[in-house]
Design a protein around this nucleic acid. Sequence first.
DNA 1: TAGTGGTCTAGACCACGCC
DNA 2: GCGTGGTCTAGACCACTAG
Lengths: 249, 249
Amino acid sequence: MSPPTSTLPQSAARPGYSPLYLQVKQTLVEKMIAGEWPPGALLPSEQQLGLRLGVSQGTVRKALDALASENIVVRHQGRGTFVSEHDQQRTLFQFFKLVDEQGEKRFPETVDSRLSLVAANAAERAAFGLGANARVWHLFRNRALKGKITLTEKITLAAERFPRLDAHKPLPNNVYQLYERQYGTTITRAVEKLRAVLADDRDAEALGCSVGAPILQIDRNAYGLDGALAEVRRSHCMTEDFHYLSDLH
Amino acid sequence: MSPPTSTLPQSAARPGYSPLYLQVKQTLVEKMIAGEWPPGALLPSEQQLGLRLGVSQGTVRKALDALASENIVVRHQGRGTFVSEHDQQRTLFQFFKLVDEQGEKRFPETVDSRLSLVAANAAERAAFGLGANARVWHLFRNRALKGKITLTEKITLAAERFPRLDAHKPLPNNVYQLYERQYGTTITRAVEKLRAVLADDRDAEALGCSVGAPILQIDRNAYGLDGALAEVRRSHCMTEDFHYLSDLH
DNA sequence: TAGTGGTCTAGACCACGCC
DNA sequence: GCGTGGTCTAGACCACTAG
């Protein structure tokens, strides 16, 4: 084999060992984080990556397959492997779980939007790992499905990770695309906690329902490529005409 | 290579083509459905399966990896590949999404259970693909988490698929294990639809809450190894102390 | 026609579980 | 020690895309 132009750490040291293909995967992710391959970029071919990293094409393939299964890259036979972008399709299929009775998805339209910068409270500092005087953005939005306001959102972001967010007003419907293009933060994974609650005065006003109506509360924590918590979001959703779809596989 | 003792269909006919490893996967699933390898059974090694099916060990591996990713088999280095069983662990991690504030899961205890056999209504006949005079089982259960009744369930099963279900009373806590051991029906996949509703009189009585309390309604359709709908379940759950956890990856 | 990923094969070595 | 799955490699051929 010709000498590699780059080497991977810890080839087989017993403690802390990780398989070669996972080291390759991690290396690729780090290059994405560093901006070497921004979202939408075409990666080098498997052969070229193998030569560059000093591993076989099959090992590169296993790393890329793992990245593809996490929706971090997209592979196209005959074209190549691309870093995933937060286009509407991805946001819809990976991060949006509300469907109508027929199981159809629609992208929600933002009807009303309010952005403010406030001092982070203790819970917010703990969640984002912020210092004592840190500040956070609060973004409130009402969103409509099929023309009817169906959910309200409160999004919380660390100001130090998303500086001058107000410069991008009006914020786009798809904020994950904004995080990605303006701040280099790609959301790759999220965890949602669901509860049933009763509509309070604010819910009732925003959603046009009565106080005490049943509301699905969705608490989402969204994480970036680097694994750090990037966004916290609480949604209140009416589930008369839509429901949350969860696949257990 | 020595001649295979069995052959796979359509080696490369253009229309309806499917890769070899998917044909292998399908062949293995069919053997499981036929009862050749019941849940818990040790499969032949990759080498032996390759010889038997006339494909390479690497192709068998790709089929087994796909089955493992769907939780249909479990692989153990040094021991072999086993058909998955519905032990408490699997039921808990794959099909039970309620966790407490600390994110801990507990297996729910069945407190009360009522089983009845009734004529299937139109919706039930359509869902299960039943004939005009078909009957279905209705199983109502109240279930407790950490000693407190937290959810009610209504389970619907086609009587023709689950004959003499009443002979197994009292039904076990883990009904998926019963389906598997007594009826050869292995649940492999489920889809849940979630809504927020208000507690009615029956919810209030069963759950010890007030009428009009917020309730998380979970409609689950569970499918067997053969892909057919096997169980329909509606759960009503209090989410004061527990919430539904959904991973978006 | 050239280049890419997708499939399939074959063989080597390692880590693990069991006897 | 033996057999298992896990990793890694190398090379062949196919299907798809693009120029």
